[in-house]
Structures are given as C-alpha cells and as structure tokens.
Design a protein around this nucleic acid. Structure first.
Lengths: 142, 142
DNA sequence: ATTCATTAGTTGTACATACAAAATAAAAAG
DNA sequence: CTTTTTATTTTGTATGTACAACTAATGAAT
C-alpha cells in the first residue's frame, strides 16, 4: 500500500513544487543579467518609480520587510541602487548602472515568458498565471 | 510612470507568491503536529512504504537529494524515522513514535484542505491544484 | 511640550532549499 | 579479479525567506 497521491492533491505541495521548478527556469533566463529574477524585478520597480520606499517595494514584491532590507543591501553593494533616508522611510533609487541594465532585464523577462509560452502555449500560460494570482489574492485576505 | 503590472503577469512571480502565502497557512494547520508540512509528508510516505529509499523520497517530494538528507537528519534526531544502510541506498523506516502520529498528520492535512475549500470553494481548489500540478509536470520535462 | 502609540527599517537567528564536490558502494568491462 | 563507470548519499557552502526583537522617527493625546 503506497498511496502517495495525497501529495498531488495538496495545493500547498503542488504550488511550492511549481515554484521550485519555475524558479530554476527563471534563473536560467536571468543568468545573463547577473541577477536572479527577484533582484531584477526590484530594480525594475526602482526604475519605474525612483525613490520608491522600501515598504512599497516589499508590498509589491510580496516579501517580508526584513527580506527586502537584505535585497537592497546586496543591490547597494553591487552599486545598482542607492538609499536615501527620508524621515522614517528609506527611498530607493536606481543608479546609472541599473538604468543601463534595463534593456537586459526586459529581455530576460521577455525570454522567460517566451519560453513558458513555447512549452505551455500562450493561452495556457496566461490562464494559469491569472488563476494562480487570483488564488493567492483570495488566500491573502484570510 | 509606475507600471508594475509586469509582476502579476509573470508566472514565476505569482507561483512563488502563492507558495509563500500557502506555506504560512499550511504551517499553521500543521502546528499542532509539531512538524512543518513537508516533514509530515515525508513521514506519511515512510509509513506508506516502510524502508522507502531516500532517492524515492526525494523524487516523490520533488526536492534535491541533499535537501532530503537534511530532512531525514532532523527527523532521525527527533526519533521519528530510522535509517538502514542497504548497499548504496539508505532505507527509511518510521518509528513507533511516527506511527503514533499518523492520525494527527492526517487530521492536519484534512484541516488544511478544509480551510482552503472554505476560502476558495471545493471545485476551485481542486481545479487550481490540478492546473498547477499539470503545469509543473509540463515544465519539468523541458 | 512630554508622553504614548504607531510605523518603517534593521539585525540576530533559523529554516528550506539547491549546487557542486567528495565519499561510498555496486555494477560493468576489460 | 582489477579497473572503470555509475548510482546514492553526504557535506560544504550559498541563497531566499521569515519571525521576533530592537531602533528610530513620526504622529496623537493629554
């Protein structure tokens, strides 16, 4: 009796499994930027809104503020962002070096999407992404 | 121009976001067992097939073998599994203590599912779980 | 204006996870 | 039956992530 189908029926398990698999793919596509996808996205947010607060970054990226602090630490060490303290908030600005990377970051995102579309089909990719997003939003409010 | 919708259209991002959110919920439901869900599932697999090899456990749980080694280390330290070396493979057996926990583990799984069903609806939960599983399987083969 | 409560950020610590390299054992090839 | 190859596990190291406790700054209430 090896009834192990319970794993495949558990959303906790399947969601994290998908996360692990897709993270590997995303990291491959972002490898040429020298950053992992989350760092790339942080930079894109900082370019889109220079001076964005760390609080807002953490919310947009859906990570804990302590995690964000560490991400910004690393990007600052790489001279990709600069902090400016403004009262009790910290504003994050992209450096010239980061702005120069924007093209590469957009390309990596594009390649990632193209790769997923090629495997899953454009429709399916959009549908599953939407479904996953909606699910996470509903779970968040509980 | 703060065009940050790109995050919500990225499956890498949404899948990991869902993973983080649902992990928190799952850990709450498993708290009474004193284990996190992945450890609970490992034990269930060992109970379902006493003597299961670490390789098979890693495959079933979709984690790297190095990760599995560490999980088994921890469960062995808690006297919940025992290792038996058998040639180049290691067999994993549940202890009496683990077997005595089975009920509680099943209950935690059940409570987790019930909670998800209550938030998302039974149909939706099943559908998203199935879709996520299928997606991860297709991505795995590439 | 002083005290109190709230908010933003940082730091210490811990855990899950992975990769690459090393160790070990079995199996295959000569 | 020795050598080489392959398979399984472990270990060293690194990263992502979180929580709890702490610091610092703002805002509110007396």
């Amino acid at each position: 009796m090896a009834d192990d189908r319970f794993l495949e029926h558990c959303l906790f398990f399947t969601a994290n499994r998908l996360g692990r698999i897709i993270t590997k793919i995303a990291e491959e596509e972002f490898a040429e930027t020298g950053l992992t996808p989350m760092y790339g996205y942080l930079i894109r947010l900082a370019i889109g809104k220079p001076g964005i607060s760390q609080k807002e970054l953490a919310e947009k990226l859906s990570i804990a503020s302590s995690t964000l602090t560490r991400f910004v630490d690393k990007l600052e060490a790489k001279k990709l962002v600069k902090r400016r303290v403004s009262g009790k908030t910290v504003q994050v600005f992209p450096t010239e070096k980061a702005i120069a990377m924007e093209e590469a970051l957009l390309r990596a995102s594009h390649n990632l999407h193209a790769r997923l579309d090629a495997i899953l089909g454009k429709e399916t990719t959009a549908a599953i992404t939407e479904a996953v997003l909606k699910t996470s939003k509903r779970l968040e409010q509980n």
